[in-house]
């Protein structure tokens, strides 16, 4: 019986084989370009930032940059103390995280350990809607609703302040933290959960002693994403936290973050190449630097946990 599927070994020079090899090559090149493009774009962004930021240090010494008491690059006697902006960024980020991490984690525990599948399918998208609200809306919500509310408690709260911007930003970030954490918790194998319950543990004990530690690398990633979101958040802080850079950790006063500064300056028309123009890029580089640091820390935690647990 003759079979059509019977194969023979082709000679290396045969046309059929050449064509097939060429096809493979083309596909491989296309895939490589796709994979490389995101890396290239990242490098492009970093390159642009550095290229514009570097000349800044021709005019301002690193010492002034790190030690000046104020951040007033556009004034008569400019000062360039970057810690003024870093302070604002960290203050609002810390406030946001102190809301988002506990609430996000608890929400994740609740969704993953206490909700039946049916209700979770309804509740989760609603929660994720929190992240879909435009940030400018959150900004005005902080300025026009939360701040007046807080002023009833602290009458001397200034109308632009780190507290309400941070709190609202925290709420905004909850779904980032909870959604990823919940995925990580639900990925914990059912036999670990049953193992704990079979030893007489309650749901709550199981959640906190077994599920969260087992899912920790995933939860850490969720926190890092939350931190990155908070560091980079712009509209809320630009609208509600104010425009006064200062070295202070008082949440009741106005402050300015790196991002809010960038928005503020880029709204005016600064001549290309002026010192003000360069500060935008410097602030951008500093922001990128911190985001990168936190991502690296997250990566470290994750690989450490994986060594410990796998």
């Amino acid at each position: 019986m003759d079979s059509k599927l019977a194969t023979t070994f082709s000679k290396p020079q045969s046309i059929k084989r050449r064509v097939r090899e060429l096809k493979e090559l083309v596909i491989r090149i296309i895939l490589f370009i796709c994979a490389a493009s995101s890396v290239l774009i990242t490098f492009g962004v970093v390159w642009t930032l550095l290229k514009e930021a570097f000349p800044f240090f021709m005019e301002v010494s690193v010492k002034n940059f790190l030690t000046d008491k104020e951040w007033t690059p556009l004034f008569e006697n400019p000062q360039y103390g970057i810690f003024n902006l870093i302070c604002g960024t960290f203050l609002t980020t810390a406030i946001a995280l102190s809301v988002a991490i506990p609430l996000g984690t608890i929400t994740a525990v609740f969704l993953s350990e206490y909700m039946s599948n049916r209700y979770r399918e309804i509740l989760k998208p609603i929660l994720e809607l929190l992240a879909a609200v435009p940030t400018v809306v959150y900004g005005y919500f902080a300025l026009l609703f939360v701040t007046p509310l807080l002023q009833k408690i602290y009458p001397d709260l200034s109308s632009f302040n780190a507290l309400s911007a941070g709190l609202v930003m925290g709420v905004m970030i909850i779904p980032y933290v909870s959604s990823l954490s919940e995925d990580a918790m639900r990925a914990v194998p059912v036999h670990l959960r049953e193992g704990s319950l079979a030893l007489g543990a309650s749901n709550l004990q199981t959640s906190f002693k077994v599920i969260i530690p087992s899912a920790f690398s995933g939860i850490a990633s969720a926190y890092v994403l939350g931190i990155s979101r908070a560091l980079g958040e712009t509209m809320v802080v630009a609208i509600a936290a104010g425009l006064q850079p200062k070295i202070s950790l008082n949440p009741l006063e106005s402050t300015q973050t790196l991002t809010a500064y960038i928005v503020q300056v880029s709204q005016g028309d600064l001549p290309h190449g002026s010192i003000g123009y360069k500060t935008i890029y410097v602030a951008g580089v500093v922001l990128l630097f911190f985001t990168l640091i936190f991502n690296l820390i997250g990566l470290r935690i994750r690989s450490k946990m994986e060594i410990k647990f796998k």
Binding site: P189, L192, E194, G195, A198, V210, S214, K308
Partner: peptide, 10 residues
């Protein structure tokens, strides 16, 4: 209870 597949906690 001891399960089919060993399930030590991490």
């Amino acid at each position: 209870m001891v399960f089919q597949k060993p399930n030590p906690f991490p």
